[in-house]
């Protein structure tokens, strides 16, 4: 079994509203899965359950050997194995790029301060921003901030990376630079779950596409499934754009 992420029959409600109604899927090691679907279909919630930013009500969820539904879960160990990148970058505004990247390695992995800069540099090189190492977030464009956020996640050497609409806040010309970084990551063998509205990206880069609808996995298949939707819901979704 090479699945790193296993969701089985996940139920999740906010108050009385059930948002995930029995979601099951798996992600294999090195696999890139794109999650698509209408706004409100539960994509972000499913993703956030994977690193326990949300708690689930029922079902079983295993990530990199951590049983997330178990009471004795080592939350911080889980979070070291799972990186996450957000739509709104969420860089720390009071810290430089270097400090943003090395904060977690220094605090969580006790990385010695003298090795911090080298780690920041190597992470930044992977996103093509080595020259911005001493800048503050506000001095960067949105695209650059998002690439730094990716570098910040990479610096923790996660086994799985989660991306939640990471280009939605960006201008089209800045979207490209972020997607390119993600594509290179994917080619490098990173296990990735990518919630996205970029259908071209999903088609080209994803090994598998998951279409979510009303809190369920509605249809799933290789990238080519987007050219040949089986359900009327996916067909409607693709026809209407978003």
């Amino acid at each position: 079994m090479s699945a790193v992420v296993k969701l089985h029959d996940i139920h999740k409600s906010f108050g009385s509203v059930e948002v995930l109604k029995g979601v099951s899927f798996e992600i294999d090691k090195g696999e890139v899965v794109a999650i698509i679907g209408r706004s409100g279909s539960g994509k972000s919630t499913a993703l956030r359950c994977i690193n326990r930013l949300e708690t689930i009500q029922s079902g079983t969820l295993e990530v990199c050997g951590h049983r997330i539904d178990h009471a004795d879960l080592d939350l911080r160990a889980l979070r070291q194995d799972v990186g996450m990148v957000f739509q709104s970058y969420n860089l720390f505004p009071h810290l430089t790029v270097e400090e943003n990247i090395t904060l977690a390695p220094r605090r969580v992995k006790k990385l010695p301060t003298r090795d911090a800069r080298a780690l920041a540099l190597s992470s930044l090189e992977r996103v093509g921003l080595a020259e911005k190492i001493d800048a503050y977030p506000e001095q960067l464009s949105g695209g650059q901030q998002q690439r730094v956020a990716i570098a910040r996640s990479l610096a923790m050497q996660p086994k799985v990376m989660l991306f939640d609409e990471v280009t939605s806040a960006l201008d089209p010309q800045l979207t490209g630079e972020v997607l390119r970084v993600m594509e290179i990551l994917a080619q490098g063998g990173m296990t990735m779950a990518v919630v996205t509205h970029e259908m071209a990206f999903a088609r080209r880069v994803a090994d598998r596409v998951i279409f979510m609808h009303q809190g369920r996995v509605w249809e799933t298949g290789p990238g080519a499934m987007l050219d040949d939707p089986q359900t009327p819901e996916l067909r409607a979704f693709l026809a209407n754009g978003l």
Binding site: N51, F86, L103, A104, V108, R152, S153
Partner: peptide, 21 residues
């Protein structure tokens, strides 16, 4: 912003570390 705290949680920082940093 709450997103700052979520980002820190996702990076594995502990609650005291999040409060401080």
């Amino acid at each position: 912003h709450p997103g700052q705290i979520e980002a820190a949680e996702a990076l594995g920082l502990s609650v005291p570390q999040i409060y401080w940093d």
